[in-house]
């Protein structure tokens, strides 16, 4: 690298400042989940596992966690199927309005959650006459989870030579066999990366969920939000937050590793 010593020191400094601003508060949350003091007195007078035990016994938190995981898995599954099909159709076929459809699929991730939430709430209740609940949360989450899958798959398809699929057909494979033996294996890591991101998106969503959950279902973020201001629940909320930090780091880390690995594999291919 041809970088002057001063510039390098400056960049290292900037990076350090940014990372500190992001991660010190997160570290505090983690630390406070072991803090003896209920009001998070600083510095902690002692460490305890009491709050982790209390959180483990909180039925509200456990139920909310279960709902969040189920919603996340279902929304991800729906996104994987629909997102892949949309990407294949848009990348491999030529038709009128192709670019417009592509834009429409990506748009939901850019729309403010409050707009999406209001619109879906309105459509679910008055247009379709649906009872708000588990099903409506899944549908709402799928609208934006599709985007990560769609983007990942489309990027992969763009770099994948179409002659691979032609070669497969040329060698005697019917379209489904070509998909099973060639297209899908080459998409697999893109699907995994897209799916993990989709799950992460769904798992921490709160705005759209608020509008589409109705009164009976609670996802984990909503449970946290509602218990945040109850003084005797605060330590438990803190523990849940700490657990979420650890949990959400895993899929992101995996997704990043996967896309790097495949970057190498696909671009090294002839």
């Amino acid at each position: 690298m041809t970088m002057s010593r001063g510039l390098r020191a400056f960049l290292v400094g900037c990076t350090a400042v940014v990372l500190t601003i992001v991660y010190v508060p997160l570290a505090l949350v983690l630390l406070n989940s072991f803090n003896v003091s209920k009001s998070f007195a600083w510095p902690p007078s002692g460490l305890t596992l009491r709050w982790w035990q209390a959180a483990g016994h909180s039925t509200g938190a456990r139920h909310a966690l279960l709902v969040s995981v189920e919603v996340g898995l279902l929304a991800t599954a729906v996104s994987l199927v629909l997102g892949t099909m949309a990407a294949l159709a848009l990348q491999r076929a030529r038709f009128f309005g192709r670019n417009a459809v592509s834009l429409l699929i990506i748009l939901p991730i850019a729309l403010p959650g409050i707009v999406t939430g209001l619109a879906l709430n309105n459509a679910f209740t008055s247009l379709f006459g649906l009872q708000l609940g588990f099903f409506t949360i899944v549908v709402a989450h799928a609208t934006f989870c599709i985007v990560t899958v769609f983007n990942n798959v489309q990027a992969r398809l763009r770099r994948m030579s179409e002659s691979l699929e032609e070669a497969s057909a040329d060698l005697g494979a019917r379209p489904f066999t070509t998909f099973r033996l060639v297209t899908f294996p080459l998409l697999r890591s893109a699907l995994l990366a897209g799916g993990l991101l989709a799950f992460a998106l769904s798992f921490d969503e709160i705005i759209v969920t608020t509008f589409t959950a109705g009164g009976h279902e609670q996802t984990l973020p909503i449970w946290i939000f509602q218990n945040l201001f109850r003084p005797n629940q605060t330590p438990v909320v803190n523990v849940v937050a700490a657990a979420l930090i650890v949990l959400s780091a895993v899929p992101i880390w995996l997704a990043q590793r996967l896309s790097q690995e495949v970057e190498g594999a696909v671009s090294a291919a002839p």
Binding site: S161, S163, L164, E166, A167, S168, D170, L171, V182, P185, L186, A265, V266, A268, A269, P270
Partner: peptide, 14 residues
Amino acid sequence: DVNTVFQDYALFPH
């Protein structure tokens, strides 16, 4: 009953 040798070879990378 024909087979093709492609310009970019189109070998399956996986």
